[in-house]
Design a protein around this nucleic acid. Structure first.
Lengths: 128, 128
DNA sequence: TCATATAGGGATAAATTAGTCCCCTATTGC
DNA sequence: GCAATAGGGGACTAATTTATCCCTATATGA
């Protein structure tokens, strides 16, 4: 596991929430778990752009931060289920609000974001 | 400037808002500008842990994404003022909600976060 | 004359995050 | 026996983000 070399700031609420929600897929993981997709394989199907590995790592962090809980059933083949903790449930309204804002301003956002991404890239990645 | 090699996903609202709000200091920049700290030097003083360089870069991105506007006064020494755009103002309630959640759960968050950060680090960085 | 304040940028290095590849477990079905 | 399934993890590499260092310009005050 990666050993941090720089201590994060934990001065204010924004620092604190940042520590637990930053991570490319964390918010989406929380959202999908909230929607009832409990098992790792389901989550991987919902987020195909993330590698299995990274999802596992981020799920582990969410678990360490007590936002989700994990139950491992001792069966073969293995069965694992994630769920939001009570604490984790309290972030859902925030995620919902973020997603809603993004949806409301979808066109404008897409526009300003794409302006920053140069053409060659689009060309090279048309197939992805 | 860094040229992206991977096209970001822009499928849903969460992807979109992520593109404009990710960045270690962006949310704080928006917040302080909202509080009336308009000038670069003021912002740097409010966020001493960020290097001047990075703040400039992130301010530029916020500007490109039309969340803030920048006015350069042609005087010497230079004077620059940032302000939230109308669009930028619409994110403030979200940031406020995030910060509030962080504040409400401050103790618990600090606790779970620090558990993940190992002791040697704390030792090596006691002075920072 | 020299330091200070103001704003900014290039080059480069360091830190962090994400992704790829390959391997392991044990059972069921063919 | 062999493939498929479900969940994981180590080693390593690539991508991305932040930080550091140094340099530019001009006016003011000591």
């Amino acid at each position: 596991m990666y050993q941090r070399k720089i201590i994060p700031n934990l001065n204010c609420g924004l620092d604190l929430i940042g520590e637990v929600l930053y991570g490319k897929w964390k918010i989406r993981l929380l959202w999908f778990i909230h929607e009832g997709h409990k098992r790792p394989s389901e989550l991987q199907r919902k987020i195909p752009d993330a590698s299995r590995r990274v999802l596992n790592i981020q799920l582990k962090e969410l678990e360490d931060h007590e936002l989700v809980s994990k139950v491992i059933y001792p069966v073969v083949p293995p069965k694992v289920e994630y769920a939001l903790t009570e604490f984790g449930k309290t972030v859902i309204p925030l995620i919902s609000a973020l997603g809603q804002w993004g949806d409301e301003h979808e066109d404008r956002l897409r526009d300003v974001i794409l302006k920053q991404i140069v053409i060659p890239d689009l060309h090279d990645n048309l197939d992805s």
